[in-house]
């Protein structure tokens, strides 16, 4: 019972306890796996290990983490948002189109893109709540429209360039290593943390995601909260799209469409469940790192796109088997 009693067996017990805690924390597992895969990548291709490699790893991780923030919130609230990739692409196109190689337009771009993201998010949320169809179907339909709209507006060709100062604010390397996108992250990450962990709204999102009926009967305005998660998700995806335009300098249609998939997997790997009510943004950041490292490894291995597609599918099935089996009919 007391410290004295257990003192004798402490070292063994402690290790066991630590191991249990480690396996219970998806974020810790994700970080450990990242380190492992990272080491593997370097062993396979030691020449590739340089400042630029590290820098782009950080940059891509931060970009993926920012683009996964919305998905994290929506999933915790019990939903699913497949429009992230399309919204990101649309925001990127809008950014490069509006800036058109000129500086000083960041604020306009920011306001317009966030508004666009909010509108798309509202449509998502409104349809999910009002139609009562699975979120996946609804958000895919909305996402398709956002993609089609990009084609209509750009006629399928790349549009403009982001402003040089803005590009620099994203990809500049401090000490030749750390990309300047971390400055955006320094503002963005705390906001998400506050929203999810330290605001009443965040608590409501968790309650709704864990048990919608109970939240409703406890007096939470469930529909309002669900719509809000989608609106916030749309805005965050749009923000990620702006930064994405800075990273890629120019944008074409559906440039970030694969982020719909990558961000979803990053969120799940980070410990947020499909069934809702569980998860943290910290876990998502870990998941984003793992996905980025994995992608680097696959590139280093020279795996063809077909194999990568099949692998992606199998990863989802694997994640579903680990986290999301429903109960058997018979007890």
């Amino acid at each position: 019972m007391t410290l004295k009693d257990t003192a004798g067996k402490l070292p063994r017990m402690d290790f066991k306890l630590l191991w249990m805690r480690f396996t219970k924390s998806p974020a810790a597992v994700a970080y450990a796996l990242s380190a492992l895969l990272f080491a593997l990548t370097i062993i396979i291709n030691p020449k590739g290990f340089n400042n630029n490699f590290i820098g782009s790893l950080i940059l891509l991780t931060v970009l993926l983490a920012i683009s996964s923030a919305g998905q994290t919130i929506v999933l915790i609230g019990g939903g699913l948002d497949f429009s992230g990739g399309a919204v990101m692409s649309a925001a990127a196109i809008f950014t490069s189109f509006t800036m058109d190689s000129k500086d000083g337009l960041f604020l306009q771009v920011l306001v317009m893109c966030l508004a666009m993201g909010a509108v798309v998010g509202f449509l998502n949320g409104f349809f999910v709540v009002k139609i009562g169809l699975p979120a996946m179907i609804v958000t895919m339909a909305v996402s398709n429209i956002v993609s089609r709209l990009q084609y209509v507006l750009t006629a399928g060709s790349p549009a403009g360039w982001a402003g040089p100062a803005f590009i620099n604010s994203v990809i500049h390397r401090f000490f030749d290593v750390i990309p300047s996108i971390v400055l955006y992250a320094a503002v963005f990450f705390p906001i998400v943390f506050w929203l999810l962990q330290r605001s009443r709204f965040g608590k409501q999102v968790y309650l709704v995601g864990n048990n919608k009926q109970a939240a409703y009967l406890t007096g939470v305005k469930v529909n309002w909260v669900i719509i809000a998660t989608y609106v916030i998700s749309g805005m965050m995806s749009a923000f990620a799209g702006i930064l994405g335009a800075g990273y890629k300098a120019t944008a074409r249609v559906d440039i970030f469409s694969e982020y719909a998939f990558t961000s979803l997997v990053a969120v799940i790997v980070g410990g947020t469940t499909f069934s809702g009510g569980v998860g943290t943004y910290g876990g998502t950041i870990a998941g984003a790192l793992l996905m980025t490292v994995l992608s680097n490894l696959l590139t280093t291995l020279g795996l063809p796109q077909t194999m990568r597609d099949i692998l992606n599918g199998l990863i989802i099935i694997l994640l579903l088997m680990m986290y999301n089996r429903s109960k058997a009919v018979r007890q």
Partner: peptide, 27 residues
């Protein structure tokens, strides 16, 4: 087998299989 026997959510199984079948098709 994934959705009926393993009882995984059918919607996301379908999403995963889009990738798998695409890979098979292109190979």
């Amino acid at each position: 087998a994934c959705s009926a026997i393993l009882r995984l959510p059918a919607m996301l199984v379908g999403y995963a299989f889009i990738f798998i079948i695409k890979g098979i098709n292109v190979s």
